[in-house]
Design a protein around this nucleic acid. Structure first.
Length: 802
RNA sequence: GCUCCCGUGGCGGAAUUGGCAGACGCGUUGGACUCAAAAUCCAAUUCCUUUCGGAGUGCCGGUUCGAUCCCGGCCGGGAGUACCA
């Protein structure tokens, strides 16, 4: 006898919808709040993947658990719908992107609703809805007003195949993150957001967050803080200087040459006539290398001498100045002093070009030596250790005004414009008189015009440039202008959506202040680790900006963050169409039911582990639900006569242990072990003729966050007149989880020799006495000296005797 | 290369302020039920050994009465990042 999942799931999903069971009163500040959020999905044409329900079920369990614990819970869902893949697909298939997007969202929503997730659907948001992106544009205007959004002609990552530029974070090994197309460096006029202004705060404030340490490390590495010094070098025979950044100013006496990046502004000026042809050829070649080529060729260092010399300000020695592309124009000052004895890259270059190598730090068997040691050949720095030498060197430079202490970050400003159609228009107008102004707030949203032809032009302009009616504007004084035709990147909409969920229909502000104050920060945020440095860094940046201008009350958006692991295919590989190992959640819903899918994904293992899908495992989860059903319900569909009002003492301990374990595990997102605790109780209950109805109700309540449909059905059969959603969470009695008598293991020299049942509250001395008096133990220690006896109360006694 | 994480039965995984390794599930085996099968229920299931017993949490060593857990070295796997001066 098994339950009919299709019938039950339909019934309760309809019930929840009709009764708005999960509606959140966002203006009720009387109860303690809990905001639990999923990374909202990108609604692709492919539909939901079995990986989606893993994170969604986890947050749903927490949402439901917190409701039963009396919290006012915010648990919303929406669509991150702007972006490349759907747009590209629509272009390739001749679909209208607006229509296609609508269909994708409908399909995603249907699939998500089938999972019985307890979202407040009245808060649904869609980043492509003008009522939403009005505020995305509003935030951009604020960034622009504060000088944090600017236009610059910079070398950017241009992807020919996608017809757009990409942010550094979107380029992986010289290929686009989306689609894996080649990316080349190319100077273009682009919108840029000054995320670097927030580098230090983005780094520092990580400390306060309850995030996985590995993820914080990734952000730290990405921000890449380095402390060191900027040193000015004079160029021999001119009054020019250049500045080099170094983290090792203490090794200045070991600097034997200098290098400028090929794009460095001074290169042309200082190159001597003899060397000009060679230098120009080198620069030309370097400029045409794609990122991919640079990566592949990184082992061979190349460069060419400019003919010029720099003067080392510490000892006035001449250092030849090279141009080499192992020095990056975008980091530090685009120039370095090379210390081949103590830097691997400089060593390699110096060896190749036969440049002098001068040791200034003692230690290590061979060069290059990058470790610490006393300084030598270093004038006033001789004998000092690294730290002191750095300090002294900086002191000398600052006194002599040819250098200063300096902190540098790897993080670069965020390239914010895309030459694509499917994104938020940037609300800026360029006037023919040469001025640029922002669209007035009152004119927002600046709507994306509906267009048939949305293919990228390939010229570096977005397709919006072809829409004359939209692009051209005339000011009251008759001056003509053109709208900015670049659009915002996919990340824009997801940078602040968690704020809009708090107050999704507000026309006056992106959200009401009091509501923001009550609901922020997000208490728990769950999503994939792939967003570690993209979405999560960008969103923190915007949030900090909004904090600075007084819009949000907290410094950070997401207090606790958790990355769910992937679900792999049966062969332990990533699921992919080409491997044919993709599991569709719709299929599992049909055959096994949404409850089984949810249960299985939570029971597979720890939430953050990546684990392979197995069909047998799904069957096993369904089997457990059938077992629960049969424990309570008879063949006719009524509550069994074995479910009784009277106490069933035999199950008391088992029940209280289950409640304790499940409660603790739900708090810590340890769903796999929580489920196993419930399985243990069910197994115990099967061994009894009678089960107290209170225990059964408790079991059903604790199951309800994981498998809500079957739980609602059982709850109503057990006499519930309403949803189980707001029933108070079961409590346990610590005393009842313990036995009066415990088995004490007696070891001699660590080997188990006897097991003795003893009263749990015996003193250490009594336990030791009983252990030593036991027959088997006596035999073992006969003729030996007892040197030491270790007693671990309630567990074991270890006798050291020889 | 650098940073971080992880190595436990046939499989997914439990267990750590250091205290009986292998909970729970899958798979397998046996039994009950059945004319039979499926389903279900019950039981066994780390390995070696006929038994007694022995070995065992990637490998080697250390600390400890006691190590899956702490320390050092190695081997293997994964994620991120990459000429960042």
């Amino acid at each position: 006898m098994s339950f009919n999942h299709r019938e039950i799931e339909k019934k309760w999903q309809a019930y929840w919808d009709e009764n708005k069971t999960f509606k959140t009163d966002d203006a009720d500040f009387s109860k303690e709040k809990f905001y639990v959020l999923d990374m909202f999905p990108y609604p692709s044409g492919a539909g939901l993947h079995v990986g989606h329900p893993k994170g969604y079920t986890a947050t749903d369990i927490v949402a439901r658990y917190k409701r039963m614990n009396g919290y006012n819970v915010m648990h919303p869902m929406g669509w991150d719908a702007f972006g490349l893949p759907a747009e590209q697909y629509a272009i390739d298939t001749g679909n209208d992107i607006h229509e296609f997007n609508k269909l994708n969202i409908e399909n995603f929503k249907r699939q998500i609703k089938d999972l019985g997730l307890s979202y407040d659907w009245d808060r649904e948001i869609d980043t492509t809805d003008p009522n939403y992106y009005k505020w995305t544009q509003w935030i951009f205007l604020k960034l622009y007003e504060k000088g944090l959004a600017y236009v610059d002609e910079v070398p950017v990552n241009w992807c020919e195949a996608l017809g757009t530029v990409l942010a550094n974070e979107e380029v992986i090994d010289g290929l686009s993150e989306r689609g894996g197309h080649p990316v080349v460096r190319k100077p273009m006029r682009q919108w840029i957001l000054k995320i670097t202004e927030y580098a230090e705060r983005l780094l520092e404030d990580l400390e306060e967050l309850d995030w996985p340490e590995s993820l914080k490390d990734m952000q730290r590495n990405w921000i890449g803080k380095s402390e060191g010094a900027n040193i000015d070098f004079k160029i021999e025979g001119t009054d020019q200087t250049f500045t080099a950044f170094t983290t090792r100013p203490d090794t200045i006496y070991g600097a034997t040459y200098a290098v400028l990046a090929p794009e460095h502004k001074l290169v042309e000026e200082i190159t001597t006539d003899d060397q000009r042809a060679e230098v120009e050829a080198y620069i030309e070649k370097a400029a045409h290398k794609s990122d991919l080529e640079r990566t592949e060729l990184q082992k061979d260092k190349t460069g060419v001498w400019t003919g010029a010399y720099a003067i080392n300000p510490f000892n006035n020695e001449k250092m030849p100045i090279f141009v080499a592309d192992y020095v990056l124009v975008s980091y530090g000052t685009g120039a370095i002093m090379a210390v081949p004895a103590h830097d691997e890259r400089d060593f390699e270059f110096a060896t190749q070009y036969d440049l002098p190598i001068k040791r200034v730090v003692e230690g290590g068997e061979e060069l290059p030596y990058v470790g610490e040691g006393p300084h030598i050949n270093s004038g006033e720095l001789d004998g000092l250790n690294k730290e002191d030498a750095i300090q002294k060197a900086i002191e000398i430079m600052e006194n002599g005004k040819f250098g200063e202490k300096k902190t540098t970050y790897k993080l670069r400003d965020w390239l914010f414009s895309r030459q694509r159609y499917w994104g938020e228009p940037i609300p800026i107008i360029h006037w023919e008189d040469g001025t640029t102004t922002a669209v007035d707030e009152s004119e927002l949203p600046l709507k994306l015009p509906v267009m048939k032809e949305i293919k990228p032009s390939g010229t570096g302009e977005s397709p919006l440039a072809n829409n004359e009616e939209w692009v051209n504007v005339v000011r009251e004084d008759g001056v003509k202008g053109r709208r900015e035709t670049n659009t915002m990147p996919q990340w824009a909409g997801s940078c602040w959506y968690y704020l809009r969920f708090i107050d999704p229909n507000n026309d006056e502000a992106l959200a009401d202040k009091d509501k923001l104050k009550n609901w922020l920060p997000v208490d728990l945020y769950i999503g994939g680790a792939e967003h570690a440095v993209l979405h999560l860094l960008y969103a923190r940046f915007w949030h900090k900006f909004l904090y600075d201008i007084g819009v949000v009350p907290t410094k950070e958006p997401f207090q606790k963050l958790f990355n769910q692991g992937m679900i792999l295919g049966e062969g332990n590989e990533k699921m992919s169409k080409s491997k044919g190992n993709v599991v569709n959640p719709d299929d599992i819903n049909q055959t096994h039911g949404a409850d089984t899918l949810r249960l299985y994904e939570m029971f597979m293992g720890p939430l953050d582990a990546s684990i392979a899908w197995t069909t047998n495992g799904v069957d096993g989860s369904r089997r457990f639900l059938d077992r629960v059903w049969r424990l309570i319900i008879d063949e006719e569909g009524n509550v069994k006569s074995s479910i009784v009002e009277e106490e069933t003492k035999e199950l008391e301990k088992s029940y209280h242990m289950m409640v304790k374990k499940v409660t603790e595990d739900f708090e810590n997102l340890h769903f796999n072990t929580a489920i196993s605790a419930m399985m243990v109780f069910v197994n115990d209950a099967y061994k009894q003729d009678k089960v107290n109805i209170g225990y059964v109700k408790g079991l059903v309540q604790m199951l309800s966050p994981v498998v809500p449909h079957i739980a609602e059905e059982l709850w109503s059969k057990l006499g519930g007149t309403d949803t189980v959603t707001y029933e108070a969470w079961p409590t346990f009695d610590e005393e009842k989880t313990k036995d009066d008598e415990v088995e004490i293991l007696v070891q001699v020299l660590g080997k188990p020799k006897a097991r003795i049942m003893m009263s749990a509250d015996l003193s250490k001395e009594e336990v030791e006495k009983q252990a030593l008096e036991h027959e088997d133990v006596k035999k073992e220690i006969e003729g030996k000296t007892v040197r030491k006896v270790i007693v671990v109360p309630g567990k074991l006694v270890n006798i050291v005797a020889n």
